[in-house]
């Protein structure tokens, strides 16, 4: 599994490092791994092991409660299956819009979890930064460098 996902692993390591730098050295507080989760979910080319591991890592490095991302992505997966085909054949703009919508829903779920548990953090500027800058960038890199061949795509029900 590691060999099959080498590019994704390397990409996620880079993203974790980038998230760490952005969160600690700038005014933004971003959740880059959540973007990757959304893109993987919408793209359909994932397995649940990947999603679980990425969710736990996103919680750890993003300083969210352990299980927040897992809960959110599990809830999202109920609705995303219907949009996967449309997402795959769309151009970059519809893809970005769809990914942003699902990403916003994921963040909303995590925000609600935080409200229930008692720790809340909101930053509109960070959200805008993620939606406008990071989302298209990560989608582009995922498409061009991580998922290069259609034969690599494996569909799981």
């Amino acid at each position: 599994m590691i060999i099959n996902n080498v590019r994704l692993i390397i990409f996620c390591i880079i993203l974790v490092f980038a998230q760490f730098l952005i969160n600690n050295l700038t005014i933004f507080y971003v959740d880059i791994l959540a973007i990757v989760l959304v893109c993987l979910l919408l793209g359909g080319n994932y397995n649940w092991t990947q999603l679980i591991i990425l969710s736990l890592l996103a919680d750890l490095f993003g300083h969210w409660y352990l299980g927040s991302h897992l809960l959110a992505i599990t809830i999202l997966s109920v609705f995303s299956a219907k949009f996967t085909s449309f997402y795959r054949v769309s151009n970059w703009l519809p893809r970005t819009i769809m990914a942003n919508i699902f990403f916003s829903i994921l963040l909303l779920i995590i925000y609600l979890i935080d409200v229930i548990v008692g720790k809340v953090f909101t930053s509109l500027s960070s959200l805008l930064f993620e939606i406008i800058v990071l989302m298209p960038l990560i989608q582009f890199i995922l498409q061009k460098f991580v998922n290069l061949r259609s034969s690599d795509i494996i569909f799981y029900d």
Binding site: W48, S55, L66, G67, S68, L70, L71, T74, V117
Partner: peptide
């Protein structure tokens, strides 16, 4: 998965 994640959050 939902139950596990809720459990993790509580833990």
């Amino acid at each position: 998965l939902i139950l596990i994640s809720v459990g993790l959050i509580a833990f």
